[in-house]
Design a binder for these strands. Structure first.
Lengths: 342, 342
DNA sequence: GGTCAGGCTGCACTCGATTGCAGTGAGCGG
DNA sequence: CCGCTCACTGCAATCGAGTGCAGCCTGACC
């Protein structure tokens, strides 16, 4: 408990010799026009002098607005999310909002509980970065009119605005790059079939190899159980067993690509001489790997910022149509890709 | 705005046929003894049935408790912090608290503003991970009775509880490891002199080399301007200019060590054959570097969890004496350290 | 049967800010 | 000189929950 009681609106009013109601109006830019300009100035000066800060709870109680939004992410520890969160906060803060972060660990049970927790904290909207493909909870929240924006993953069917990287374009860039280097037998280690990104990237890969007349053997596409190094390693081992002649890999994301590195070490495969790899996400410090990983850079901070802006819009005008945005990404060519040995 | 108005205490009371006051008492475990057990049960059942959630704002308004604590960190994007935050949240959540994260970017101005923002949001306490050595603001908050815990950095002079890794012990482990390998001329690229960690680690390094009768030339210790790769690279270039005979480096943290890798590449130095490096922090994916970085692993999540526990204690009993905790860390030996060429 | 104690419950006010409505006074036109 | 308008300000209720106090009712005891 602070030694000095923080001043209340009543204190300001008393000190300025006006009624609390007048002080309230003077301090709120929206209602300031209702009070005499001179009075308003005086009140504001007094408030400044006393270091007055409106109590957000009292205000929220009356206005039914909390000035907070919920950020639902699988796990903050995943290096993917901090930049997104940062981008979100950077937009939220100047708007007078704060973000409440919860981690779901991709557990639907936990996700449900966490979202309940956020709602009980009266968040005004949700930015959701978890996204299993099938998502009845999202649909329900949507129906209840909770403003929502999804980032990074795109829900199927449900009409929720989302900000996602343009996965298809990214995969095309990766395939183009490898094809240009001369690769013909390119494998894809796709993300879990339960995630929208996993599915979207796999589809994009299939289209890309078809369009470029490369090897379209379905065996070249292996689905990982999870977005992890371990799952990536397992998938690659499987792929190598079936198609040992593959010369390049498009990994579903960077972690899966890292799993490939483990298999390379394990089997004595020389990357990039014998095998090229492209990752997806451009996690930090990939340039320090051996070899530095070629990958697709996603503008994470921009994604977060854009999502926050959209959510604020949705909160302000709940009835506006849902709009979704695809953000362009860029291929960062490093040392893990090279022409195939001929 | 949810289509279905969330039920209020009054709704529960009406549905249960009691006065709101009674309902309030029945729902609050602390006052439940005041109401008839049967009535209490009925009220609770009705509340459950309606899906009643107390409005935290109304409650907070009355009780002057927000159920939130502020997390002040320099930059969430720094891989050091997400695990700490995660550890904090994991403790806070079951206790019914939530964390409000702000990023200061190590800018005192911004830090001040952000802390003001947190206070205006009525946080009940602060977990502070920024820490320039000289910190009048902390002292002021301390005097005002704001419950506070510092993580990772330790304030000088001010009597604030803190949770920090045992930097001195860590540095000793690093120096021991290098000395055991046979190194005699070990350099230290220390963190900024304005940070408590920078200073503590440098002091520990000086003591360690002295105690082990290694080369104590002050020129072997170079201070970096920032905790960054660039600053690390600059410092190493400087060190190599002055003492080209150095065979091992203890870096102030992993980023500084990464800066060393850049210089190695630039000057064609073979690590670890010609030069060993030890980092500090064990950031993610260091094992994927070339060579994998030997470093000191800090139990970040534990630090966060411990800090959160301490803060909750401090909130519950504001008058308890400040207590500080040093957490042990462990040396992770990887490929960046080897015996010197003789 | 009367009295008193004690267990429950309800009343009413409070937290701090917002806001519809009423009232005051000045200024102006008729 | 009267009345009306308009700008401004004050009053009081409100948001939802918590809590001191008073009162009721029941049961026990004399």
């Amino acid at each position: 408990m602070p030694a000095v009681q923080t001043p209340t609106l009543r204190d300001v009013a008393d000190a300025a010799g006006v009624h609390p109601a007048t002080a309230s109006r003077a301090l709120n830019p929206a209602t300031r026009g209702l009070v005499n300009a001179e009075t308003a100035r005086r009140v504001m000066k007094v408030a400044e002098g006393l270091g007055y800060r409106p109590n957000p709870m009292a205000r929220g109680l009356k206005t039914a607005k909390s000035g907070t939004v919920g950020l639902v992410i699988p796990d903050l520890t995943n290096p993917l999310f901090p930049p997104i969160v940062r981008g979100i906060e950077d937009v939220l803060e100047p708007a007078g909002y704060s973000g409440l972060i919860v981690n779901t660990d991709n557990d639907p049970q936990r996700e449900h509980a966490q979202i309940e927790l956020l709602r009980s904290r009266q968040v005004e909207g949700l930015i959701v970065a978890t996204a299993l493909l099938d998502h009845p909870l999202m649909a329900k929240l949507q129906r209840e009119g909770v403003p929502m924006v999804m980032v990074n993953r795109r829900p199927d069917g449900v009409d929720i605005p989302s900000i996602t990287p343009d996965d298809a374009a990214g995969i095309e860039m990766a395939v183009d790059h490898l094809a240009d280097l001369g690769h013909r037998r390119i494998g894809h280690l796709s993300g879990p079939a339960t995630t929208s990104t996993g599915v979207a990237r796999r589809r994009a890969f299939r289209n890309a190899v078809r369009d470029r007349d490369l090897d379209v053997d379905p065996a070249l596409v292996v689905t990982c159980e999870h977005w992890t190094e371990e799952a990536g390693a397992i998938a690659l081992r499987h792929l190598l067993d079936v198609r040992p002649d593959v010369t390049a890999i498009v990994a579903g994301n960077d972690l899966i690509a890292l799993g490939c590195y483990d298999v390379f070490a394990e089997r004595g495969i020389d990357c990039p001489r014998e095998m090229s790899v492209v990752g997806f996400n451009d996690m930090p410090f990939l340039d320090k790997l051996a070899p530095p990983l070629t990958t697709l850079a996603i503008p994470h901070q921009q994604i977060g910022a854009e999502a926050a802006r959209m959510l604020l819009d949705a909160i302000a005008e709940p009835d506006r149509a849902a709009r979704s945005v695809l953000l362009p990404l860029s291929l960062v060519v490093r040392g893990s890709t090279a022409p195939p040995v001929t």
